[in-house]
């Protein structure tokens, strides 16, 4: 592989990481839910995209218009019925953290079980625009380029929504200080539900994008949860641009290591970065800006 090919492959992977990490950072930063079922929501969306794109006159791109709003609604319902009772009874932040970890850990297996029943345990994939395209002197599959462009576009759209509108600024304000958010008239309960739902919508967008160029299985969610978590911590919890940048960095590092060193070292490299960040920059690579 040439350097350019590696770089593009890294950006494709990294763009996906960035997209899903933004969703997780929304859920943790604003709704204060550490969602261990996050990766399984991504996988669910990949399967949903797989089903939807096979419908008459549909493809994965038009499928986004169904899967992403579907993810939002699913996330909203999970928050209202499963998580908000925990939020209401939790006397403090630490209790909510433990309760939400246990609950979403349970949810992980429920989602996985349903997927196993519906789709079995085999690797699944579909073909979408698997044609070579020439770019910067190398050839890449069109579906990967589309995945990259989609990941960045959707990620930046959500970023703009959260930073350029008063509505989005209000959501970020809840992350900074829930009590003060109430004082300016923000309904923090609803903000948390919306943030969790938006996070799930981003997971759904990520899952759809992933399904365009990668195989996936019902039990593959854990890896995505871990990767998203690593990117969130690298970028700084609650830091959206940090998640975006850290995602791209991680994708490029992983691809470079697997190309030039050994594919077997990819995970080791990932966790080395993660540990280094935790040890030396626990507030994330880019400081504390929300």
């Amino acid at each position: 592989m040439t350097l350019t090919t590696t770089l593009i492959a890294g950006l494709v992977l990294g763009g996906t990481y960035a997209l899903v990490a933004m969703g997780l950072t929304l859920q943790y930063g604003i709704a204060r839910i550490m969602n261990l079922a996050y990766g399984d929501m991504i996988i669910t969306a990949a399967f949903a995209a797989f089903v939807v794109q096979a419908l008459p006159s549909m493809n994965p791109l038009t499928g986004l218009a169904i899967v992403v709003p579907g993810g939002f609604i699913f996330g909203y319902l999970v928050y209202v019925f499963l998580l908000s009772p925990l939020v209401k009874r939790a006397p403090d932040k630490a209790t909510l953290e433990v309760d939400s970890i246990l609950t979403t850990f349970g949810l992980l297996f429920v989602i996985q079980g349903v997927l196993l029943v519906l789709f079995g345990s085999n690797y699944t994939s579909y073909t979408f625009l698997n044609v070579p395209v020439s770019i910067f002197g190398t050839t890449v599959a069109a579906n990967r380029l589309i995945a990259l462009v989609l990941a960045l576009t959707i990620g930046l759209m959500f970023y703009a929504l959260l930073t350029r509108t008063r509505w989005g600024t209000a959501l970020r304000a809840v992350a900074v200080s829930p009590q003060s958010a109430k004082l300016v008239g923000i309904n923090t309960d609803r903000a948390a539900a919306v943030a969790f739902a938006m996070g799930t919508a981003l997971a759904a967008a990520g899952g759809t994008v992933i399904s365009m160029y990668q195989t996936f299985t019902a039990t593959g969610g854990v890896v995505f949860t871990m990767k998203a978590l690593i990117v969130v911590i690298m970028g700084g919890v609650g830091n959206l641009l940090g998640a975006l940048t850290a995602g791209l960095v991680l994708g490029i590092v992983e691809t470079t290591v697997s190309t030039y060193l050994d594919p077997g070292l990819t995970l080791a490299a990932t966790y080395t970065i993660f540990l280094a960040v935790l040890l030396w920059r626990p507030e994330g690579l880019f400081g504390r800006r929300v």
């Binding site: 008063r166 600024t169 970020r172 992350a175 004082l183 008239g185 923090t188 800006r289």
Partner: peptide, 29 residues
């Protein structure tokens, strides 16, 4: 969160500003 609509505002003890947001964003909120 309905109290501001009643025409009452509180500057809390310790200020309670949104420290990670800009002055403009604090005012907009």
């Amino acid at each position: 969160h309905r109290i501001p609509d009643e025409g009452i505002a509180l500057v809390p003890e310790g200020r309670g500003i949104f420290t990670a947001l800009t002055v403009d964003e604090n005012l907009a909120l």
